[in-house]
Computed example of a mutant assay.
Amino acid sequence: MKAKDMSESKRLELIAEAVRYCQRVSAMGMPASVFSKALREPIHFLWERRAGSKTAAAQYRSISAVGLSFGKGKLVYDHAVPFICLQRRLLVLDTVDEPSNRALLERLNLIALITKDEDEILKSAGLNKSMPKDWDGNDPLARYREMGIELIPNRGAVNA
């Protein structure tokens, strides 16, 4: 069965199984760098890209990225909250089930389309794989606000 043909409940059930697997192997001492892909891929294909394209998956777009499309190396598919931060939150869940996964994914797994230059700004500030030091844990767009990257809702989004 293709991911796009699965019910949302089935996709969340599969993601929950991936979270439980990662929790088990982490507790056994496996480094996150080894098991991370076992969580990242199900979330990417079963949750983020459930509507198909990267453009449809992105809830936001920077003003500078308006009019840009993939294929020319100028547009970047960026997790508003870096995946490592989401992964940490998922791995400490006491109860791994559909409601807990849905709550975290809906709140923290947001995608923004930004320019390559804006991606470099985040990298140079050390914010490509982390949130700002004073992050409240709630505002998923905090990295962009801190760096002055203005976002607007993505008109092509299906998962918004």
Rank of each mutant, 00 (worst) to 15 (best):
G156H: 10
A58S: 04
F70S: 00
V25A: 09
F45D: 05
E41S: 15
D5C: 08
A142F: 02
I15V: 11
R102A: 15
L110R: 13
P153W: 10
E118F: 13
Y144L: 01
L14D: 05
M131L: 03
A80P: 06
A58C: 04
L113I: 06
F70D: 01
T95H: 14
L141C: 10
L46E: 14
N154T: 07
Y144P: 03
V96I: 10
R89G: 01
L12G: 06
L14K: 12
V92N: 11
G29L: 06
I84H: 08
E17A: 10
S7H: 05
E118H: 14
R145M: 09
L93F: 15
T55A: 13
G71S: 04
L141Q: 11
D94L: 09
K72H: 03
F83E: 01
S33N: 07
V19R: 08
G156D: 02
N128K: 10
S7N: 04
R145H: 14
L68V: 07
A56Y: 14
E41I: 13
S53I: 09
A157I: 14
F45G: 07
R20H: 03
I111M: 08
L151K: 13
A160V: 14
N159E: 08
A142C: 01
P132C: 00
E41R: 15
A18I: 03
V66S: 03
L68P: 13
N159S: 06
G71M: 04
R88V: 00
I111F: 11
G137S: 03
A157Q: 09
V25T: 12
K2M: 13
A142K: 01
L113W: 08
C85R: 08
L108G: 07
D134K: 10
N138L: 12
A157V: 11
I152W: 13
Y144V: 00
I114M: 02
W47P: 07
R40I: 01
V76T: 06
Q59R: 09
A125W: 05
R155W: 13
R155P: 07
I114S: 02
A3F: 12
Y144A: 00
L122W: 04
M28N: 02
A80L: 09
R89Y: 05
K72E: 01
S124P: 00
R89T: 03
E120Y: 10
S64Y: 15
F35E: 00
M28V: 09
D119M: 03
R155N: 00
D139Y: 14
P82N: 01
G137E: 00
A58N: 07
R102T: 15
N101V: 04
L91S: 11
R11W: 14
E98C: 11
E41F: 13
W47R: 03
